[in-house]
Design a protein around this nucleic acid. Structure first.
Length: 512
RNA sequence: GACCCGGUAGCUCAGCUGGUAGAGCAGCGGCCUUUUAAGCCGUAGGUCGUGGGUUCGAGCCCCACCCGGGUCACCA
């Protein structure tokens, strides 16, 4: 070996394992076996084979393709396991069956993608196996995958030396997925959840739409945005922090039921429950109020729970299976009224009657940080978080938020200090936010202007006046119920996932 | 941002009060035609996160920094 092959990254310091695999690739090429194929016609999946063989000792010929996930060479025979989307199946290579081809099999490695042909049979120990008569190398694995070794103890699979560094598993999700079928199953169940939600909404006559991600003004939530710049227009654009204001423009336009599933972006911290981009579902239903929307949310969350549960199947194996005990499909989540709940927790008749000074001292008593610089709405919200939200465990609606906390919600019938708004909490985390949408453009302008004053007074999260949105509302917007649900959070709740990193295929990470 | 824990071979980890690195798996060579964490024999593989410092001598002690995890704070 006078010349070292070059790594894609330019480093010539190939580790010895990778060097060996390059050499095998060359050796195979010398035998006329290309390292990378073009296609393969599968006849079956691994999981079909047990039924196909039945009780017989010898079965039909099958053609399987997938990744080599285990390899046990014994001289003139080799046992391997092939993993495909359905599971894994044992392969048996024999020199007396394959002849010279066996020489090429000896250059295969753990992780190679291969296609095999051969009859099914049952080994001495009873395992359904393919006696390989033809084999094709479809992709040589030049970099060793971090396979652990698996052992079955008392019917449970125990993995040894598994790939377990959470950071590397997130950074190299492809490797995490390649060696962990259960991670594939988890993310597949997330897709099942999304599909169930679409089916649910489509079935109720909602139209799925796409609205701008790049927005000249951001709104619909209180958060710090990502800012970018359009060169030709020479103007700043913001990545959306919410879909809300565009979806309600569509309600004005006559699409009476719309929804969007997409990413929102918030330029804030990253932690166990926050990723800078996350998946938001928002849906709006004309002529409905927030009470009707609560019932819809109960059904939708139930449908999502059923979908995740059935997709995960053997969820009982999951260490966090307790999350599945909550009988969400039953619906009828408990409801807590914002004002009486907080007033009782604080020990006053009406927290909204407290002046700013009294609120501040209450917030300080509740261990809220940074009280001195907070606006009144912020103080109220912090107080509520500290006393009520963090204690909520099972899915619970909190209803009727103060008007000053809810610039896009209609005043509550019978108590204009409150709004017709609810949030859904579970495990102390917000899952959904919804209201009877404010459709009075005169009131909406006053609310925007109050927000603008807060912003001027230094509240970084307060919003701007969106004149175009007001113009739309002036044309006439029907009464509408609207809901936003963070799908990452919902999925985490339904699966018991502790870290948002494990609910997002490619979470945002600092560069290596 | 604060505090705590961690970063050693491709993977998972060990390394006692400081004496300049170990195991298993993966790899390579050999033996092995029903194995399954295959086995046996042999072998190779490491700027111990980075940069300073203390010391005759640092994976280990000190300082700074980088990266990750956890807890708290923040994120309606």
């Amino acid at each position: 070996m006078s010349e070292k092959p070059e790594l894609p990254d330019g480093s010539e310091d190939l580790n010895f394992v990778m060097r060996a695999r390059r050499e095998k690739l060359d050796a195979l090429a010398a035998k006329g076996v290309p390292g990378f194929g073009y296609s393969f016609q599968r006849s079956h999946l691994a999981s079909d084979c047990a039924e196909l063989l039945g009780d017989a000792e010898e079965g039909p010929v099958v053609r399987l393709a997938g990744r080599v996930v285990a390899w046990r060479a014994h001289g003139k025979t080799t046992f391997a396991h092939l993993g495909d989307p359905s599971g894994r199946l044992q392969l048996y290579f024999r020199r007396d069956v394959l002849g010279d081809v066996y020489d090429t099999v000896e250059y295969f490695d753990l992780g190679d993608v291969i296609g095999v042909t051969g009859p099914l049979f049952r080994t001495r120990s009873g395992e359904v196996t393919v006696r390989v008569t033809e084999v094709e190398l479809l992709a040589k694995s030049l970099r060793p995958l971090p396979f652990g070794k698996e052992e079955v103890v008392d019917g449970k699979t125990v993995r040894h030396s598994a790939f377990s560094d959470g950071e590397q598993r997130s950074r190299q999700r492809y490797a995490d997925l390649a060696v962990h079928p259960e991670v594939r199953a988890l993310f597949a169940s997330r897709s099942a959840m999304t599909r169930a939600i679409r089916t649910f909404l489509d079935g109720r006559g909602f139209l799925e739409v796409e609205t701008p991600v790049l927005q000249p003004l951001y709104g619909g939530a209180l958060a710090k945005p990502f800012v970018t710049h359009h060169n030709t227009l020479d103007m700043p654009l913001y990545l959306r922090i919410a879909d809300e204001l565009y979806l309600k423009r569509l309600i004005v336009g006559g699409f009476e039921r719309v929804y969007e599933i997409g990413h929102d972006f918030r330029n804030e911290g990253i932690d166990r429950t926050h990723n800078p981009e996350f998946t938001m579902l928002e849906f709006y239903q004309a002529y409905a109020d927030y009470v009707e929307m609560m019932v819809v949310v109960e059904s939708l969350v139930g449908a999502a729970a059923v979908a995740v549960r059935s997709a995960l199947g053997s969820a009982a194996d999951r260490p966090d299976a307790a999350a599945f005990d909550v009988s969400l499909e039953a619906g009828g989540f408990p409801r807590i009224e914002w004002l009486p709940a907080l007033s009782a927790a604080v020990g006053v008749v009406d927290v909204l009657a407290l002046d700013d000074g009294a609120l501040r001292s209450q917030a300080t008593r509740a261990n809220v940080q940074g009280v001195a610089t907070m606006s009144r709405p912020k103080l109220l919200d912090e107080l509520f978080q500290a006393h009520i939200e963090s204690a909520i465990d099972v899915p619970t609606f909190v209803v009727d938020y103060p008007l000053e906390l809810s610039p896009l919600a209609k005043p509550k019938r019978g108590n204009p200090a409150l709004t017709e708004r609810f949030e859904l909490f579970a495990r102390g985390k917000e899952l959904a936010n919804a209201f009877s949408e404010l459709n009075d453009p005169i009131d909406q302008r006053r609310r925007f202007e109050a927000q603008a004053r807060l912003k001027a007074d230094g509240d970084e999260e307060a919003t701007m006046v969106d004149e175009d949105y007001l113009r739309a509302m002036e044309y006439g917007m029907p009464p509408t119920g609207g809901v936003g649900i963070g799908l990452d959070r919902l999925f985490m709740y339904l699966t018991g996932t502790q870290h948002i990193r494990d609910a997002i295929l490619f979470p945002t990470m600092r560069p290596e």
